[in-house]
Write a protein that binds this DNA or RNA. Sequence first.
DNA 1: CCGTTGGAGTTTTTT
DNA 2: ACTCCAACGG
Length: 858
Amino acid sequence: MTEPSKITSHGVPDHQPAAGGIAARARASVGPKYLTGLNPEQRDAVETLDGPVLVLAGAGTGKTRVLTTRIAHILSQGRARPGEILSVTFTNKAAREMKHRLGQMLGQAVEGMPWLGTFHSIGGRILRTHAELAQLKSNFTVLDVDDQVRLLKQLLQAENIDDKRWPARMLAGLIDGWKNRGLNPTQVPSGEAAMFANGKGGKLYASYQERLKILNAADFGDLLLENIRIFREHPDILRQYQQRFKYILVDEYQDTNVAQYLWLRLLAQAPSPNPSLPGLTRQSIDSSRDGSPGLDASRRPGDDENDDVLPIPVNEKAHVKNICCVGDDDQSIYGWRGAEVDNILRFEHDFPGAKVIRLERNYRSTGHILAAASHLIAHNEGRLGKTLRTEDEDGEKVTVTGAWDSEEEARGIGEEIEQLQRQGEKLNEIAILVRASYQMREFEDRFVTLGLPYRVIGGPRFYERAEIRDALAYLRVINSPADDLAFERIVNTPKRGLGDATVQMLHDHARKRRIPLFEAARAVVETDELKPKARGSLRDLVTQFDRWRAQREVTTHTDLAQIVLDESGYTEMWQKDRSADAAGRLENLKELVRSMEEFENLQGFLEHISLVMDRDGGAEEDAVSLMTLHSAKGLEFDNVFLPGWEEGLFPSQRTLDEQGRAGLEEERRLGHVGLTRARRRAKLYFATNRRIHGTWSTTIPSRFLDELPAANVEITESKGGSGWGGSGGYGASRFDDMEAFGSSYSTPGWQRAQANRNRGQGGRNGGGRGGFEEEPAPFSSAPDFGGSFSSRRRGPMTIEGELVAKSTGTTSEFSIGDRVFHQKFGYGRVAKIDGNKLTIAFDKAGEKKVVDSFVQRA
DNA sequence: CCGTTGGAGTTTTTT
DNA sequence: ACTCCAACGG
């Protein structure tokens, strides 16, 4: 590998901030230091500063480096100041990464880039400065999904709509979808608006928006949608931003949805030199429709509404700003969430005169891996087409391993990981990427058994936990007294004797007087409408909030938060709580208060919390990473395990059913993403039997396996133990020939399965579903079939261990109250015993059920 | 006010 | 099969 290949982590040399002017004119071969080490295409992408540029950056081609270097270049060329560059990413993580790298490149000469951030944080920032134009105050609250759903539920109730039949969640999804497509309530196609609750969908959307204004709140979609509306209705404001942003950079362009696209599109127009020229007002939009170029050609029907906002005059390259979008159509995996691959496919069309630069040199993976990934993705139609290539050696072939069932798959992968570990591989360089999160459990079980350190990436986020949301609700009520949702959340938490009846009363009063709940409470307390007990309690609460608000002026926001939590009784509530996770929750609350220090004040904290608070940064210990394919995007590892390549799971049946061919292609892209995460080893697995939602199904290997190029793939035996494996032919359907499985095997595991298959299906299973229907018994009552494998002795898997133990009446060697230690969960005390199954209250991890063989006396 | 029970839903996930 | 939530009963 040549030096430029080390793009990924430490490829960025230390740079002094380029002395201004020195590099005024970068010549072809000589140039500023930061340009050295870029390949010609990368360099082109960095140096093409004028006009629209689309960088098609395949996996591992140095995309982030191009973006950050481009910014550095713009700055050092004196083309713009930091505040004049708009640089948007999709996730906070990506934004942080870019800031970090920019910092490395530019030293401290440049203060942070004020407009580098996610679509939503930048949209939120713009919205706060013009909040009044959206009938909001600048301290508006950003609602998360949970708040949205609760609000919608109230609206459904008010409309007397059965929320069983028409769940609030579904409506939230619809509204979100509309917002993703840039549609206001009035713009929703009537057909779609009518789909929900017998035609009330549109009306509900409208009243939801009204309620948001009253609550001084916006949801995620509004952060962009309201921007768009303001830009359209106030050309002067739009112009102001257009003038400010001399350069626009967009990361992960393939993931943008229509709203994001429209937002970019508005900002990317050069400010009209003549103020009397129409901005993007409604009128100009409508009247320009006829003259609008054939943009609609590739639009799907039903999206027409959006096309009317694309009045970008053709042949007006001069009016389109310097926008640079970086993306990879082959890595678009968020279509189900509103991302429009179309956006990237149409770029040249939408931004006439755009320069398209392809980055196809991959600096990450070995030849075999890259070839496998490329062949797989080549089965997709509707791509812009890139061919990744590498100068790296071929390396090891991609392996495909069959396992009998998901348990064996987990066992096999566990053993391979241990083997890699013995070979000196760092666990940090090993990842398991699954399609669906329920696949993770099996691996966790296995790793706990093996004592293999692992970390789960993704999963529930910090601020989604109940205790965090409760604490935030208190702070929200302090900050924004009109935040009824927050008030409702905590009015009776901890219990204050203010139940449904009281809340209902407050609601009635609030609605009649058109005041927030909190003010209603203040008023009602002065009346005799409530029973003395509730009245007193409510009065105390109001008084407390008044006091806290007063204290806000004289105390730091962190102290205030601590005071609120203590005085409200919220901390005490958890201290008194006997349940196992109470300790963890208190810990989270402390963490929350700690994290507030990073912000200037309460307002700043609340503004950001819902946008940028992500999961706890993991400790830096050496551990295997376990995550979904989706959360793996943007990451890379030396060794990547890809289990579960089976029809129905991957590609996901549901995606296929709902999205058809487009869905299949997105799944394939997901596979491509998975493979291209690997630097040196990619190991694919499929299991013949998998339990989904409790029922065993026989599965057939994923069609994606058949789409891999034979020359780069090696079929291996499962190292999982039970001894059957996908040996056999290597032809058109190399994997789905069930006869190939185990015909020469006679292990108990195979026999068990064979018996089952016959029972469930009355014979050979032709490859469809079925078999194993609700018949776990043979598994559990099987004699110890793992005897010959020492690894299996060590930790019986739960289902076997559990059931065998029960049937044989084994009793545990532990007794209640024993102090024990567990590999993963640490120290704890035995709370309950059920055969060999222990319920243990762990000091840190809370209450967990574990099998006794996993713990030892402390 | 709390605990039990019944029912429904279970891909992916950011902001 | 399992989990999470809502409604109901003590």
